[in-house]
């Protein structure tokens, strides 16, 4: 686990290094986003896999939330590209009388390459500060499930068998989002967007093979600019 955090920190450092070294490397403009994410998981509450019927994991979480950061850069006035990182947690698993994942916690870390399509800021008027944007992002990430009680009872001869209590699984998929950005100043603004994610996942401790999650993101924008005194 410590190793994972170190690598994540190293990644962010590399990104920052790039910014540091080439402040205007995106032809003079880079936008940093940080915000709050919330959403739910969608799907059938029960999984039926060739007759094997068992409660699903994700759809039975009451919800998830977390934070996200992303950085978008240059391109042109209508397209920006960048990368993002989402960290969300899900709790409150419940399905009828079942206790399979009751009390468990899901932590998802998502990494995405983002292509943002946006409207051009006008020279004046309200659209001088607000632009509508849509994003398309392939996503990879890890989903770490921590159980409150064992799902599999392993009985060994010397009682030394460790009961599996957590799993960290790779998922991959995509996300689409749509929203708007509003600049309050030349370098600062906020954004609100709705998103829809779809990921494939494979785990030893649960049987969901996909994660479908609509969400809502909101946060702040910091614009790093080079000799730019206009919003557009």
């Amino acid at each position: 686990m410590k190793k994972t955090y170190k690598i994540q920190a190293l990644s962010v450092l590399i990104l920052l290094m790039g910014v540091e070294l080439h402040a205007q490397f995106t032809e003079g403009r880079i936008n940093l986003y940080a915000g709050y994410s919330m959403g739910t998981y969608r799907g059938d509450s029960l999984i039926n896999e060739d007759g094997f019927v068992t409660p699903a994991l994700y759809p039975n979480f009451s919800g998830m939330n977390g934070w996200m950061v992303k950085a978008l850069a240059g391109g042109n006035k209508y397209i920006r590209i960048g990368a993002g990182f989402d960290h969300v947690k899900a709790r409150g698993w419940e399905y009828r009388e079942e206790i399979d994942y009751e009390g468990s916690e899901m932590v998802m870390n998502s990494y995405s390459l983002i292509a943002q399509f946006r409207t051009k800021l006008a020279r004046a008027g309200i659209l001088n500060r607000i632009s509508v944007c849509a994003e398309l992002a392939p996503v990879v990430g890890t989903a770490r499930l921590t159980l409150s009680h064992p799902l599999v009872d392993i009985e060994s001869e010397d009682d030394s068998a460790e009961q599996p209590m957590e799993t960290s699984d790779l998922f991959a998929g995509g996300r689409v989002a749509a929203g708007f950005e509003c600049l309050i100043t030349n370098t600062f603004g906020f954004y609100i967007s709705c998103s829809f994610s779809y990921q494939q996942v494979d785990s030893k401790l649960y049987h969901d093979d996909r994660i479908i999650s609509p969400g809502l993101d909101a946060g702040f924008i910091v614009r790093l600019m080079n000799d730019k005194r206009y919003y557009y």
Binding site: K3, T4, I7, Q8, L10, S11, I14, L15, G18, A83, N109, Y111, L113, V140, G141, T142, P164, E166, T167, S168, D169, L170, K204
Partner: peptide
């Protein structure tokens, strides 16, 4: 960046 991301994800997703 992409390589970094892949590195991160692979590192994090090593199956138990």
């Amino acid at each position: 960046w992409i390589l970094s991301l892949i590195l991160v994800v692979v590192a994090c997703s090593k199956e138990k």
